[in-house]
Simulated scan of single mutants.
Amino acid sequence: MTPHISLLTLGVADLAMSRQFYAALGFSEIPESQESIAFFATSSGMLLGLYDRQALAEDTGVQLAEPGGTAFTLAHNVTSPAAVDSVLAEAVTVGATLVKAGQPVFWGGYSGYFADPDGFLWEVAYNPFMDLTGGAA
Rank of each mutant, 00 (worst) to 15 (best):
G45F: 03
G45C: 10
M46T: 14
L47T: 15
L48D: 11
G49A: 06
G49V: 12
Y51H: 11
D52G: 12
Q54P: 05
Q54D: 13
Q54H: 09
A55M: 12
A55S: 14
L56F: 01
A57W: 02
A57C: 03
A57P: 09
E58Y: 05
D59A: 15
D59Q: 15
G61K: 02
G61M: 03
V62P: 09
Q63F: 04
Q63N: 14
Q63P: 06
A65W: 02
E66F: 00
E66D: 09
E66T: 02
P67N: 13
A71S: 10
F72A: 08
F72W: 15
T73Y: 10
L74Y: 03
L74P: 11
A75H: 11
A75F: 01
V78C: 04
V78T: 07
V78H: 05
V78P: 00
T79D: 15
T79R: 05
P81C: 12
P81K: 07
A83C: 02
V84M: 12
V84D: 06
V87Y: 08
A89M: 07
A89K: 06
A91G: 13
A91H: 04
A91K: 12
A91Q: 14
V92E: 08
T93W: 03
T93P: 08
T93M: 11
V94H: 09
A96T: 10
A96H: 01
T97P: 02
V99Q: 08
K100D: 15
K100F: 09
A101V: 07
A101K: 08
G102I: 10
G102Q: 09
Q103H: 07
Q103F: 08
P104D: 12
P104A: 08
P104W: 05
F106R: 04
F106V: 14
W107I: 09
W107Q: 12
S111M: 06
G112T: 04
D116L: 07
D118P: 14
D118I: 13
L121Y: 02
W122E: 03
E123I: 00
E123Y: 01
V124A: 10
V124K: 02
V124F: 00
A125R: 01
Y126G: 03
N127Q: 08
P128C: 02
P128V: 00
F129I: 00
M130C: 05
